[in-house]
Nucleic acid binder design. Structure first.
Lengths: 165, 165
DNA sequence: AATCTATTTGTTATATTGTAACGTCAGGAT
DNA sequence: ATCCTGACGTTACAATATAACAAATAGATT
C-alpha cells in the first residue's frame, strides 16, 4: 500500500515508515522526551495511514489496541507529537499526518487534493523564505507557519470538474 | 479604534471599512450575487472588529440586530462572503476576518501574534508564487491556499517570553 | 531500596465549532 | 398567475477539542 504524504508518486511505504520511526526515536532521545506506548502507537498509526487522519480516527484505532475511548487519549499523544515536530496538523482537514522529513527545515507545505483527498508534504524552502521576507517587512517574528494548498493532484486533474469545494 | 488586519500600524479604520464595503458591493454587482441584509451586516461586523472573530462571536452580534440565535445564520453569511473573497477564514484561530484587499491577487498571508492575538493581512505575492512553483514541481494544481504564520508582532516581540503556545 | 518529584495517563464532563435537513418565503422569468 | 431559484428560519445534531482532577509511573536522589 503506497502512501502519499511525501509526494503523489507511490513509494516504499514500510521502509519509509520504519525509517521515520527510527528518526523519531533519535530525535526524542536527544531532547530527553519520552516516546511512550500511546505516543509510539499513535505515530505508527499515522505512518501506516494512506491519508491524514482526524483525531477521532486515530482514537478509534487506539481503542482497538486497548486504550480507553476518550478524546484526551488521542489528543494528548497527537499534541505531543506535533510539538516535537514528528506529526503535522493539517488545519484545512482537521487532521494529522506523520512528518516524513523529520529534522529537515520545517515549514512544510501541504498539497491537498480536493478530489481524492490525498495529502502531499512538499519541499518548501522557497515558500518559507518568502514568508519570512514578507513577515520581516512588517517586523513580525515568525515562529510557526501553516501553509496549505487545496487543489488537484496529478491523478485527478484530468478527471475532475472544476470549482472548489 | 484602530484595527489591525492590514498591518500592525494603526490606520483610519472607518475610512478603510467604508471603502471595503463599497468594493464589496462593486464586486458582487458584477457577478450578480446579492448582498442581502444579513450578509451586509456580517461583513460590517467583521470590518468593525479589531480582531478576527469566531463564527459564534459574529452570531452574537447578529442576534443583537434581531437575527435568530442559530449557527446557520452566521455560517451561511460567512461562507458566502468567503466564497466571494470578501472575508478570509483564519484556520489557526477558527475565525474570520474581513478582507482588506478586495480584488487584489489573492493568496493572502496572515500574521498572527500569539501574545496580543492581532492578525495582519500581509502582501504575499512572493509567497504565493513560491507556493505555485513548489506545487508545479509535483504537478499539483493549486486552487486555494491557506498561509498563516504564528509568532510575535512588533509590539509584543520585546515583552513576550519565548516558546510557542 | 525508599522516597520524592515531575510527567504521564485514566476518567468524567463539557465546551466549541460546524452541518444536515427541511419547510417557508421573496423575487424574477416565462 | 405560475414556476423556479436562491435565500432564510428553524430544529436538531455531528464533529472537533479542552478543562479539571485523580491515579499511576518513571527517573532522580538519598
Amino acid at each position: 500500500m503506497p502512501h502519499d504524504h511525501a509526494d503523489f508518486a507511490p513509494h516504499d511505504h514500510a521502509a519509509c515508515a520504519t525509517e521515520a520511526m527510527a528518526q523519531a526515536e533519535d530525535r526524542l532521545g536527544q531532547t530527553g522526551q519520552r516516546l511512550t506506548p500511546v505516543r509510539r502507537r499513535t505515530l505508527e498509526i499515522l505512518l501506516e495511514s494512506p491519508r491524514a487522519l482526524g483525531a477521532y480516527e486515530v482514537l478509534e484505532r487506539l481503542v482497538t489496541d486497548g486504550y480507553a475511548n476518550q478524546p484526551p487519549v488521542a489528543y494528548r499523544a497527537l499534541d505531543f507529537l506535533v510539538d516535537q515536530g514528528l506529526v503535522h496538523r493539517i488545519r484545512r482537514l482537521n487532521a494529522f499526518a506523520a512528518c516524513l522529513h523529520v529534522g529537515e527545515a520545517h515549514a512544510p507545505v501541504f498539497l491537498i487534493c480536493r478530489e481524492c483527498h490525498m495529502v502531499a508534504e512538499a519541499p518548501a524552502a522557497g515558500v518559507a523564505s518568502a514568508l519570512q521576507d514578507a513577515a520581516r517587512s512588517l517586523h513580525f517574528t515568525v515562529e510557526r507557519s501553516t501553509i496549505e494548498a487545496l487543489g488537484l493532484c496529478p491523478a485527478c486533474v484530468g478527471t475532475a470538474p472544476h470549482g472548489v469545494a
